[in-house]
Design a protein around this nucleic acid. Structure first.
Length: 306
DNA sequence: AAGATTCCCAACCGCATTCCA
DNA sequence: TTGGAATGCGGTTGGGAATCT
């Protein structure tokens, strides 16, 4: 019953591949193809598991792979697709010729996630942290808000610390005077310059103050760029005022899909709603028109999201 | 200059689904 | 039809390289 094991675990080599192993695998596959991974290591004279050979081939040896740095265009595609699809790396990678899911995943984890955090954007929801705070607070009665601040502080402390210490978000107002709309808060460049030697406790105090301000703020004063009924029905022209990043295509458009996430990301039960399910089950880019979902022309997309 | 820390990415692990004897 | 292997995928880790102190 069933198949025979793919390899004998005891005699299998692990760890880094040598150039000799790469050569054996490449030359075997170029002659015989990749039909049966269980037989490939044996026939190619490799002391490797078939699974390991498959991974080595698909992530490194395949001749059609790109090995260089990701371009700005590739990064934007990743971020936009991630904002809708989440960590579906294989689907995202399918839109980037020569990139593997492992490449995309690594690049996201090492670069893009930090980049978004540094811009004040939550890399999970692709919304600004300040808006997330206010959005959650708006759904709660006043007695719950204080608890929210504490809970949020715990959940987002690391990201907030990074944001506050690296990217100069101004949360220093301590007066109860009404704050300017946060979506238009451009005066971020002078915050940390005087306080570069703050310790963590000091920073946490600032976070608390900032959270309180975000929570107290009147919902009507908030610009909600992801709100489809708002003035900006498409795009997410949220200005963060980061040093050195204001003019890049990144800061202008990275959140474009955020509003769409609001439309199709999560339903009232916290479950993924139809939009994402559609993305998984249908070709969302059919029709040849510009793709509203990510502001990506449909013909820019390489593979349908099946 | 050297040790410590952080970053990066190739490779592994484990789970879910598909395939097949 | 069934149970176990193959495959696909996302999460995690190990170790070398780069950077910091």
């Amino acid at each position: 019953m069933g198949r025979i094991p793919c390899c004998e675990k005891e005699s299998v080599k692990k760890g880094q591949w040598t150039p000799e192993e790469d050569h054996k695998l490449s030359s075997y596959i170029s002659q015989h193809g990749t039909r049966n991974w269980r037989l490939i290591p044996k026939n190619a004279g490799l002391q490797r598991c078939g699974k390991s050979c498959r991974l080595r081939w698909t992530n490194y040896l395949r001749p059609d792979l790109k090995h260089g740095q990701f371009s700005d265009a590739e990064e934007q595609i990743i971020v936009r697709l991630h904002s809708v699809l989440g960590n579906r790396w294989s689907v995202i990678a399918a839109q980037l010729p020569g990139r593997t899911d492992n490449d995309v995943k690594n690049h996201w984890n090492t670069k893009l996630r930090k980049k978004l955090s540094g811009m004040g954007i939550d890399p999970v929801t692709h919304k600004p942290y300040s808006h997330l705070m206010a959005e959650i607070a708006n759904t709660l009665a006043p007695p719950q808000v204080a608890n929210l601040a504490e809970a949020t502080l715990g959940c987002l402390k690391d990201e907030m610390l990074h944001l506050l210490t690296k990217k100069h978000i101004d949360i220093q107002f301590q007066s109860p005077a009404p704050a300017p709309p946060m979506a238009n808060n451009n005066n971020n460049n002078n915050m940390c310059s005087k306080h570069e030697e703050n310790d963590d406790d000091d920073t946490i105090e600032k976070i608390k103050i900032g959270l309180s301000r975000a929570i107290i703020q009147e919902p009507e004063t908030m610009n909600k760029p992801w709100d489809s009924n708002g003035a900006s029905s498409r795009g997410f022209h949220y200005v963060f005022g980061h040093e050195g990043e204001g003019g890049s295509p990144w800061s202008q458009s990275m959140c474009t899909a955020g509003e769409q996430q609001g439309k199709l990301g999560v339903d009232e039960n916290g479950d993924e709603c139809s939009g994402e399910k559609d993305a998984r089950n249908n070709n969302m880019f059919s029709g040849g028109e510009e793709c509203e979902l990510w502001d990506l022309p449909s013909n820019d997309l390489i593979n349908p999201l099946v």
